[in-house]
Simulated assay, not measured.
Amino acid sequence: MVDWLLEPLTFEFMRRAIAVGLLIGILCPVMGAYLIVLRMALIGDVIAHAILPGLAIANFLRVDILLGAFASGMTSTFVIAWIRSQSRVKVDAAMALTFSSFFALGVALLTLLKSRLNLDELLFGDILSVNNDDIWRTALITGVVLLLTRLSYKELLFYSFDPVGAEAVGLPVNLIHFSLMAGITLTILAGMKTVGVILVVSLLVGPAITAYLLVKELHLIMGLGAAIGAIATITGMYLSYHLNLPSGPAIALVTFSCFLLGLLFSPYQGIFTQPRTSK
């Protein structure tokens, strides 16, 4: 058992992968908790796919692809807000349309601009190839997002549970909304190298909804979700190493397994723990 645990750590690429995986495993559920409370979990998937045009354009212009991806992701949130404000279209329909349109535009631009970006790596990640610069970049994003989240926790809490009430007392709800979307976008960009823009949604949502089944207060959901995300990431990395599985899918499957256990055995709403009603 000890050899099973220690053997992967003898390789530098595994130590780097576990380090960056821990950071992402902690950051994603903290931000995902707000999406769960706001019932906007799909927005993570929208932004994850909407960054593709920005990646293609930034690569063509030879600028940092993270800048292009961030601009593209934020543009998608503005498009969704604009559609909602200018029509009777509901938010889920606006997100679905934006999701497909931005993703299609991204694929088209990658082809037209003859981009050399590795699409498989972008979509599914390549955590084993992370270097020290990736670790420091991820650590910086994680630190900044978590610090700003902590400093604005009360405002975000109020907005998450009662947007109308927050607006009524004078809080800048539009600024809060787009600041939250900026945090989500940065989180997705941080996880892009780890599990890819598709599977990062599993870390963004999975640990958070697992914690949501187990505890009731937002700060507890965030804390427990971060712990679950870290455990799922490390476990996925070890399974990837020992079973020769792709790292991103392994992490996503462990995340779903954690959710399934919570769904079955949650003390509050678990399938197997609820009292049977007599007929």
Rank of each mutant, 00 (worst) to 15 (best):
W82L: 13
I141S: 01
A166P: 01
I18H: 01
A104R: 11
T194Y: 00
A208L: 01
I231H: 07
L220V: 01
G206H: 01
H177A: 05
N59P: 07
L42I: 01
P249W: 08
R88P: 08
S129I: 13
F102E: 01
T98V: 12
L220Q: 12
F124R: 09
E7Q: 10
V164E: 14
L105M: 14
F102R: 03
I127W: 11
K216A: 13
L5V: 10
G143R: 03
L6N: 12
P275F: 10
Y212A: 11
R116V: 00
P172D: 04
R150M: 12
S85A: 15
A190I: 13
F124H: 09
F178L: 08
I26S: 10
G73M: 09
R16H: 08
V173R: 02
R137D: 03
R116W: 04
I228G: 00
L203F: 05
V63T: 15
I231F: 15
F78M: 11
L42K: 06
T210D: 07
L22Y: 09
T194A: 15
H242N: 06
A227R: 09
L157K: 03
A190D: 03
I26F: 13
A33H: 04
V2G: 11
L171R: 02
S179R: 08
T111C: 06
A93F: 10
M222I: 02
L147S: 13
L243D: 05
K90T: 13
A211H: 10
L112P: 06
L218H: 10
L156H: 13
C258R: 04
L220M: 12
S257W: 06
N131P: 11
S72K: 08
V144M: 14
A94F: 03
R84F: 01
A168S: 13
K90H: 14
S247D: 06
L6S: 06
T111F: 08
A17F: 04
T235V: 14
S202W: 09
L156M: 15
I234H: 06
S152F: 15
L112C: 05
T277Q: 14
L67F: 15
E7F: 11
G32M: 13
L157M: 10
V46W: 04
T149I: 05
L61T: 08
N244T: 13
S247N: 07
